[in-house]
C-alpha cells in the first residue's frame, strides 16, 4: 500500500439519511471525477460501486454521514462515517442475505443483505467498525495497478 504518497485528489461529501431521491448522487460524482483523473475503467467501476453501496447504507440506516475519498498514485481510499444506530453484530451483518432493511429500502431494490458483501468483494482492503447508538465507520482501499 502506498499510504504515504501525497494525494492527487481529496474530497468530502455529506450524505443525508432518509433522502432516497438523492441517494447515489455522491457516488455518481465520484465516478465522474475518477474518470477525469484518468484511472483505469476497472478501478473507476470498483470505487464507484463501493461508494454507491456505502452511500445507500447511510441513506438507509443513518441520520447523516460523510463519504471521503482520497486518490494517490497507488490507490483510491474511500471512508464513510455515519451517525446512526450502529451494528450490534458485525459478523451477522456481513453474512449474505442478512438484512434489517425496511420495506421502503427493499422496494428500491436494496436491503437484500448484499451491500456489505459487495463492498468487501470489490475492495482490496476493507475495514468495518461500529458502535451501538453512535454509528458505523467503513474504510475501503482499491489498488491502482500501474499508477495514475
Amino acid at each position: 500500500m502506498h499510504v504515504h504518497e501525497k494525494p492527487t485528489f481529496e474530497s468530502n461529501y455529506t450524505v443525508q439519511g432518509g433522502n432516497f431521491d438523492e441517494a447515489g448522487k455522491v457516488a455518481s460524482q465520484i465516478k465522474v471525477i475518477l474518470k477525469k483523473l484518468g484511472l483505469q475503467t476497472d478501478v473507476v467501476r470498483k470505487a464507484a460501486l463501493v461508494a454507491y453501496e456505502s452511500e445507500i447504507n447511510i441513506v438507509s440506516y443513518a441520520r447523516k454521514g460523510t463519504i471521503s475519498i482520497s486518490v494517490t498514485p497507488g490507490q483510491v481510499k474511500i471512508e464513510t462515517t455515519d451517525e446512526g444506530q450502529g451494528i450490534p453484530d458485525i459478523n451477522l451483518a456481513m453474512q449474505e442475505g442478512y438484512s434489517t432493511a425496511t420495506s421502503k429500502i427493499r422496494e428500491m431494490g436494496f436491503g437484500a443483505g448484499m451491500g456489505l458483501c459487495n463492498i468487501k468483494k470489490f475492495s482490496d482492503y476493507f475495514q468495518i467498525t461500529s458502535e451501538i447508538g453512535k454509528g458505523t465507520h467503513l474504510k475501503m482501499i482499491i489498488n491502482i495497478e500501474n499508477g495514475v
Binding site: 447515489g24 457516488a27 455518481s28 465516478k31 467501476r45 445507500i56 431494490g109
Partner: peptide
C-alpha cells in the same frame, strides 16, 4: 431488465455504464 422504476435503477446503471 428490471421490474423497478425508481431513480436508483438509473443511478445503478450510471455506476456500471
Amino acid at each position: 431488465l428490471t421490474g423497478l422504476t425508481n431513480p436508483q435503477v438509473i443511478r445503478t446503471s450510471d455506476i456500471l455504464d
